[in-house]
Design a protein around this nucleic acid. Structure first.
Lengths: 184, 184
DNA sequence: GAGGACATGTAATGTGTTACATGATTAA
DNA sequence: TTAATCATGTAACACATTACATGTCCTC
């Protein structure tokens, strides 16, 4: 493993679903795993070049009239092997860097009112996401019910639901705690 | 705001608690907010230099025999003002980059057994953290009960407890789901 | 005619960790 | 005697986002 470039593994993973271009990858990510993973073109295109140089993917150029060429990448056997190794390798737990919690930690430097505004904004945001997850949950049930991928994709969605719900609960209990401070 | 350097605000915040050195900051962070915020010396020392150049902090050098000099920084009025502005400013929601979820999303590329191992390792880790949080919760109740900071520090801790508990729940339900796949 | 989708790519910039450099004191 | 703690700082490297560059087609 050593210094593993996670972007490269993410792209290999996407190609294990189906052959696609860098452009496809960006929009696929946005529509599916965007809430826990994101990549920019500035990462994707150089990474694809490196993967191609290592023969972990193949490239086919397909041109349509009046459209820029599409570079369609496919996984090679070596690429699939590399992907499998990564999936099986030890995963370091994520580190948070949570700006709102940091602000809250320095509490008395501002009024409780200001912290309340911050948390209300976060709560609103999380409730919106929760609603989105519920919508996706419905969609996934109808479309993919019998697919091999279904339990895996459903599991990632459930992560979103459970963690977002926990964050919503936290916002509410923290708002209540801040109200108590104001009364003093 | 524009391009705000979060490290600098974090350090201003720490100095709002009490004057301290860069070295102090690193260890303070590790013992308190480390689970949602971290800084390295490579960030801290240059940031302190910049804050000093902007007169947001003052520096006093205190030397003890046989020990390297300590540079003790304190917040200036301008620094405190800057800190308050940041706390009140809009906070962008955090973005996750969750490697384990990414691996899971590519599910059928390996056996369910491999995903189970991954999630069991995560579960073990999260349970350890949960236990730590419970210990800190006890400690905080005894020591800081009547402090101005108490509700704020307690709130950050509660975030850890609630979100970690949600992750634990997720691990368990996902393990159950993976078992069903194996049976097929 | 303005803006967005399509499509690939590089450059600049920001931001973060790790390794290196120095060197005394103290505890195992 | 080996390692950890104390203490500051720089340099190298890794990784990510955003801006820039190019250019057509299609929709409002």
């Amino acid at each position: 493993m050593a210094r593993s470039n996670k972007t490269e593994y993410a792209l290999l993973g996407l190609l294990s679903l189906e052959p696609m271009s860098g452009y496809d990858m960006k929009s696929f990510i946005a529509q599916s795993i965007g809430f826990f993973w994101q990549e920019s073109y500035g990462q994707i295109y150089p990474a694809l070049k490196r993967l191609h140089a290592q023969k972990l993917v193949t490239r086919k150029v397909s041109g349509k009239a009046g459209r820029p060429d599409r570079h369609i990448y496919s996984l090679t056997a070596a690429g699939r092997k590399k992907l499998r190794e990564w999936v099986g390798a030890k995963t370091e737990p994520e580190r948070l860097r949570h700006e709102l919690l940091l602000k809250l930690f320095f509490g008395p430097v501002v009024t409780p009112e200001i912290h309340k505004e911050q948390i209300e904004a976060l709560l609103k945001h999380q409730l919106g996401r929760l609603e989105q997850f519920r919508q996706v949950e419905k969609g996934i049930l109808k479309e993919y019910d019998d697919d091999d991928y279904y339990p895996y994709w459903y599991s990632t969605l459930r992560f979103g639901v459970l963690v977002t719900q926990a964050r919503v609960d936290w916002c509410r209990e923290t708002l209540a705690r801040l109200k108590k401070i104001e009364k003093k």
